[in-house]
Design a protein around this nucleic acid. Structure first.
Lengths: 181, 181, 181, 181
DNA sequence: AATGAATGAGGCTTCATTCAT
DNA sequence: CATGAATGAAGCCTCATTCAT
């Protein structure tokens, strides 16, 4: 693990456990086992560290989910697969998910970061659009469809640290029942 | 509006717009048009102000939703009515909803406050239990059912400041489709 | 006990037990069982309260000691009697003595109060002067003689909350041996 | 002078001249010519600064006095020598003496510090015990003997910034006359 | 590149004092 | 006279950031 990674890792742990504000740069340096000054060689400010960490995780998250997209499969299969990937990611990286959910509304997050992370998920939109055209899913505003299911799944995952395959299937089923026509 | 209310109101506005940490006691005093010391006549610390505000809103919220419970109606009607009440509350008090959603995970929130607010929603659980017994809704863990729909509805409402009656009906329909058997 | 006296009494207790700075006006009002504003009807400021309290006690103290002066008695008898009176006062009013000893150097004490209280003890000086003229006590600077014995007796009394008559006699004897020729 | 020493020195000056309470951390930092934060690198709180300063001085003081103890000399010589050392220290370091005398009763002083400084003077007790066994000094409680003379000498020294050798001899003589048999 | 002592702005909180009731 | 809510200056302390080593 490079020094930069160990700093990001330490920051993630502390931010999630204690909150961004209760986590001083000194504390992060201690956890990352480096000097305070060292951190400033990699991140010019605490704000940048927070934004970089957020961006890092969001990119991993979107990459993981988007790997589910295989246009050879049916729309239903693709949509459900993105949900399963999201659940898997959350269970494998609970801290990472908690961080992006807790601080996605933080006023410290720069708009460009919010926009950039939002764009990462654009490919998802198209599937839902196609689904609607095919008459498979409800003919509602795509943003509403996605928001609804994303909110449901995220809430579910934030509330449980463990899920059996059956649990996952049940959640996915609820999601599909919600949006299917 | 009493002085205490104006302080709570000012705090709510600023917390939601700028974040808890970026909001100093001085700033709140300015918005509430009172001296800094005055705030400490009503709240012994910033921490208590935050907790009291949270508790206040959560109680209003639960009261508003629970008024929907009328055992003369069908289970389906009752459940859907709670969702509509939640949507109504959120649209009428967007800042209040945003506050409780943004800071419900804040490490500054005392456990007793979390517990107390949780208990307020216990009556809801029973309806879902009955619904399961009657074979109307899916036979899943009640916590999961509630978490799923609550997450979905909250996410929806946090993303839109306005909703037409049709929008509301559409969301409610998705919710019901998700949990119905 | 008049309201003014109860305020002074409360202040004395709290000042000695917790220190002047750790004692707020609110605390004194609580102990004196009156409103904060009430105190300001009797003492225009905390500083005045402190000075008045100091002056009050010092006057009681000097009055008590000076009653020992009876020019019909021998110089030795008079001097020793002042010491005994000082010991008696200290044992009867330990808090009062502690207060004037602890805070006699406080920068908050006004010079006029210091001077005034000093003057109260002037009659004592004359006895020592006479004692020196009579060749009974050592021919040293009067201030030094008084300072020496006063320091010794005060230190003794601050260190013990109780003294038997024998204890008192022993201390008095040491004092006399110290200054006698 | 190290930074820590300059902070302690500045604190001593200001505490003695203005009182502990009237001396803000900002004022000390100004006098020590360092930033406020710097002080907190050496002392975690004002309270600890006060205690450390007290402990520092008390140790210097006791070390200086105890150097007077040479068991080859007579008891009388040893006792008198400790007094002379105490006088010398006080005259050489008037501020230091004033500090430990003014604030020895401060409620801010931790008990462990009081105990620790008390223990430093234990060796003195033994000389007085021996003196009593030898029938040289009065057969009184050792604590009373020490308290009496210590109080007398301290009061003397607090009242005069300068003393000639004759003055010192006179004070020492009074002390010895007080306790000798 | 790595370090951490130094810095001071700014946050939370206290409290002497005022004043309207 | 009695009261105590209101006030804001000032205190202690934290912490993001800098810079000399």
């Amino acid at each position: 693990m490079t020094k930069k990674e160990s700093i990001l890792s330490a920051a993630l742990h502390l931010f999630v456990d204690r909150g961004e504000q209760a986590t001083s740069m000194k504390l992060i340096a201690g956890e990352a086992e480096c000097g305070i000054g060292t951190m400033y060689n990699y991140f010019p400010s605490k704000e940048r560290l927070i934004n970089d960490l957020y961006l890092n995780i969001k990119i991993s998250y979107s990459n993981y989910i988007l790997e589910a997209l295989d246009s050879d499969n049916s729309i239903k299969h693709q949509i459900i697969h993105t949900w399963k990937r999201a659940l898997e990611f959350a269970l494998a990286h609970p801290r990472e998910l908690k961080y992006i959910e807790l601080f996605c509304q933080s006023p410290i997050l720069e708009d460009c970061v919010k926009t950039e992370t939002l764009n990462k998920f654009l490919p998802l939109w198209e599937i839902y659009e196609t689904g609607k055209e095919d008459g498979i899913i409800k003919d509602l505003d795509t943003l509403k469809l996605i928001t609804f299911v994303k909110g449901a799944i995220t809430a579910t995952v934030m509330n449980q640290s463990e899920m059996s395959p059956e649990d996952m299937d049940a959640v996915v089923q609820m999601g599909w029942d919600a949006i299917k026509k």
